[in-house]
């Protein structure tokens, strides 16, 4: 029984992306010369997989552009943190600035790409990721500004919740963070684009069938022709 469970678990693992692979696929969307804002969670991992032959600068909305990796042990500085309140470093060419200027970069569309997590996305691009009514409300932080302003938003998320219910919906059930703003989504099952009539399936995770993506998607899934597998 236990053995069977393990096999089932292993198969499940093969047939969908883990968080690292989601980050790797998203990293392929980052182009030379991009200024990128990374949210907390899977998006943070994306920085590790950006091609080394292109120039990219990461912005953290608490006030740094040109964010580098975590500091070496003993070199942490309480005055240099990211939006997740983690100690970070500043790369050569980095700059520090105030919160209003930071959101001028975001609201003024100077940041090229925003990558963030979501609890739900609707087929019209609505996103919910800040509040679960009845549970602890932590606040939206910069998420509402980011989704309302960015031209180019990629969401990193699991396709379904722990109960197996779709998180790609006709309509969000949770309080919205922003309306009609998501452009692309990378889940553990698929790479999708929001188009006029719903979620357009662009790529399948390796080993995942179109049928299983269809089953896991409550919103309108648009399938045109052969759907290629992602290359991770």
């Amino acid at each position: 029984m236990k053995k069977e469970l393990n096999i089932a678990r292993q198969e499940k693992r093969i047939a969908m992306l883990d968080k690292t692979s989601i980050a790797k696929r998203i990293a392929q969307e980052i182009k030379n010369g991009f200024y990128v804002n990374l949210g907390i969670g899977i998006p943070t991992l994306v920085a590790n997989y950006v091609r080394k032959d292109i120039e990219v600068e990461f912005q953290s909305e608490n006030g740094v552009l040109g964010m580098g990796p975590f500091p070496f042990e003993g070199e942490e500085d309480a005055d240099i943190i990211n939006a997740g309140k983690q100690t970070i470093t500043a790369l050569p060419g980095a700059s520090f600035f105030d919160s209003a200027l930071s959101f001028s970069m975001i609201r003024g569309k100077h940041v090229d790409l925003t990558i963030l997590g979501a609890m739900e996305v609707a087929e019209n691009g609505d996103i919910a990721n800040w509040k679960i009514p009845g549970k602890m409300v932590k606040g939206m932080g910069g998420a509402m500004d980011l989704v309302a302003s960015a031209e180019n938003i990629i969401v990193a998320m699991m396709h379904t919740n722990k109960a197996g219910e779709s998180k790609l919906l006709k309509k969000c059930s949770l309080p919205l963070t922003g309306v009609g703003c998501v452009k692309k989504i990378v889940t553990n099952l698929a790479f999708l684009e929001i188009v006029e009539k719903g979620f357009k399936l662009l790529e399948r995770a390796p080993g995942v069938s179109v049928e299983s993506i269809r089953k896991a998607t409550e919103g309108n899934l648009i399938i045109t022709g052969e759907i290629p597998e992602m290359k991770i």
Binding site: A47, F70, E76, I81, I88
Partner: peptide, 17 residues
């Protein structure tokens, strides 16, 4: 005190970007 909320570091030999 300048307390650090989430202390994150990497090892000297790491080559993470």
């Amino acid at each position: 005190e300048k307390r650090i909320e989430h202390r994150k570091t990497r090892k000297k030999n790491s080559n993470v970007r």
